[in-house]
């Protein structure tokens, strides 16, 4: 493969152009829109706000820097440590995204590295790590998570990763090398990239793929082992 072909294959901007051309304008809770001239470029907003008049939505024009701030807090002003949690704030529109790189950077601020995960998945190059491998790697205060039983892992993932209130990612990893599903408490569509995890039935949404258990889940596993199941106890773990 020559370098130009490789660049096209692995370029996020080129991939984004392909996805937009296929009318795939949803990423998680974000609705993308192509603006007609004279504005041109792109606009982003919460998909729940898609039917609201523009003037009702607060205008942001600061690109990815504004996206970082919009993604930081939920509607109640609480910090969002997990960007793929289904609690993106409402009432804003992000405009002045003139081209694909600007759009890509903004989307990447809302959902860090998820476009890259999707591109790697489409290219067959997304590394996927079983939960047991992730836990076996831990040291320090998280080494204890290696004691998580299968039953505890099953319940934990079923509770922590569920799309309705937990995380909108589509889980690709298995519990172990034997291929045990991540959790028997999650519906089959939680593992299906074509399914819209927001529950809105959008058939062409871009999935937020999960290739490996996140550090929040590892921290929660520690809380389970130590008998600190409450949200407050789990949130105090931050080292």
């Amino acid at each position: 493969m020559d370098q130009d072909a490789a660049r096209l294959l692995f370029s996020l901007d080129a991939a984004l152009a392909r996805w937009l051309a296929a009318a795939r304008m949803r990423l998680g809770q974000i609705q993308m829109e192509t603006l007609p001239p004279p504005q041109a470029g792109f606009r982003l907003r919460h998909h729940d706000d898609a039917g609201r008049p523009h003037e009702e939505l607060a205008l942001f024009t600061g690109g990815a820097d504004d996206a970082v701030e919009l993604a930081r807090y939920d509607d109640a002003g609480n910090y969002r440590p997990l960007k793929t949690a289904p609690n993106l704030r409402h009432g804003w529109r992000l405009e002045a995204l003139p081209d694909l790189p600007a759009l890509r950077r903004a989307l990447d601020a809302f959902y860090p590295a998820r476009l890259g995960a999707l591109l790697a998945f489409e290219n067959g190059r997304l590394p996927v790590t079983p939960l047991r491998e992730t836990l076996a790697r831990q040291t320090g205060m998280y080494r204890i998570t290696q004691k998580l039983t299968d039953a505890q892992a099953d319940a934990l993932v079923g509770r922590f990763c569920r799309s309705d209130g937990g995380c909108l990612r589509t889980i690709l990893w298995r519990r172990d090398l034997a291929g045990t599903p991540a959790s028997s408490h999650l519906p089959p569509e939680k593992f299906e990239p074509a399914f819209d995890q927001t529950g809105h039935g959008e058939t062409r949404s871009l999935p937020l793929l999960c290739q490996e258990a996140c550090n929040l889940l590892v921290a929660e596993a520690r809380a389970v082992i130590k008998g600190e199941r409450t949200a407050a106890a789990a949130s105090a773990v931050d080292c």
Binding site: Q3, A6, R7, F10, S11, L12, P81, L82, K83, T84, Y111, P112, A113, G116, A117, L119, A120, R125, L126, P127, T129, E212, C214, N215, L216, D238
Partner: peptide
């Protein structure tokens, strides 16, 4: 980040451009 996104483990996804 260790405790935020993108996570350290997302490293293979960050710089796919072959140049």
């Amino acid at each position: 980040f260790w405790k935020e996104e993108p996570a350290l483990r997302d490293w293979p996804l960050l710089f796919p451009d072959p140049t």
